[in-house]
Design a protein around this nucleic acid. Structure first.
Lengths: 200, 200
DNA sequence: TGGTTTATGTCAGTCATGTTGACATATTTG
DNA sequence: CAAATATGTCAACATGACTGACATAAACCA
């Protein structure tokens, strides 16, 4: 198997044609493209460690997402989970059923509206969710540290701004985040009660 | 269908037990957990627009990744692509075959070593790759702008630091990135020729 | 009250993308 | 020439997404 880390060949990249010219925009474009790639590699490694743990339980990425958001939002309804994950109820059903059957998540009929199912993690589920979160927290903590103290806010602003504009109010509400670091940029959109209306 | 954006219910989150206590670490933990969620939402939206375009062609995420790295690394060998993507040759074969059959990628037998296949995009492939890259570039450009001018470097450092330490040399080389923004943090690891040895 | 809407669950089939394992072919290398 | 290497290919399988159809219970409303 060709290891990515032991090669004795010339650099992979032929200099791109536009690169030699004194073109500032081409350099700029290159920098942005490398951000695309950084984001790809970063996300892959971000999920890598949890995936290894989940495998011990016979779970996958989908289980992690469900467990995480139920852990973070005790009493969440099925419909809310679907809205957050943006998957179909059939997709959710498969993994949720496993998590419930194996005792990681408990369901309870809604008191107000008895059609609703409210989900929360069991002690067992909380333990696994915390273990997985710990791995990602540590990685993020280290990465933020390397971005510097001032860089932490910037990194958060960057991630938030990467989210589609139409989803941002919901995400801000879900995460209890105020207006972004650069006020004015989203002015006009920030005119809502941050704690109400976006997600149930 | 419950829309994520029109609800009239109380806030989803019950305040977590640890939240009321004057615990700085719990707040810190919460902030980091919201980064986990930001990263999840950000990556999903990051790939959302390209996915919609790819669908027009009957392609998926896997096709985009292959097309992207071939576009960025003309003449790349199959083995190198496998090392970058970290998938099996069987997985690669399926999507690569489609891209070749449909004229987006061309193969050429290696001049030095005739066992090797060197891949590059065709004009048609370059056009699609550029179109997809443009979508992601614009999103990143906007997001970096919102992180502020000083935040741009921080965001890049953050993403790079999110990558597993053992992959960083290879990624730095692939992206032609020098040592990270915070010198000293990775000191000792940075002692290599940046343009050689990591990837072919 | 009774019909409609809503929240949820479930069956059945399909698709995309990853995996393992086995094996074939061409070419380079020792 | 034998062994190692780079690539390709067949077959089977797992995961996690999708669509479409239908069932049930509860709430809402005219």
């Amino acid at each position: 198997m060709t290891d990515i880390n032991q090669q004795t060949r010339p650099p992979l990249h032929a200099p791109r044609p536009s690169e030699a010219a004194a073109s500032a925009p081409a350099d700029r474009r290159d920098a942005l493209i490398s951000c695309i790639e950084l984001f790809f590699f970063a996300y892959r490694d971000f999920t890598g460690e949890p995936d290894a743990v989940l495998e011990e339980y016979g779970f996958g990425r989908a289980h992690h997402r469900v467990l995480h958001f139920v852990h973070r939002n005790p009493g969440i309804r099925v419909a809310d989970l679907l809205a957050i994950l943006k998957i179909t109820k059939q997709s959710l059903a498969r993994v949720l059923k496993q998590l419930v059957d194996e005792g990681f998540i408990a369901q309870r009929t809604g008191a107000d509206d008895r059609r609703e199912r409210h989900l929360k993690v069991t002690a067992k589920g909380a333990k696994l969710a915390s273990r997985l979160a710990e791995l990602q927290i540590r990685r993020i903590e280290t990465a933020l540290a390397k971005a510097g103290p001032a860089g932490e806010g910037a990194a958060r602003d960057f991630l938030l701004a990467m989210i589609a504009a139409e989803d941002q109010p919901a995400v801000r509400s879900l995460l209890r985040i105020g207006a972004g670091g650069n006020p004015g940029a989203t002015a006009g959109t920030t005119g809502g009660d941050p704690a109400k209306g976006q997600l149930p």
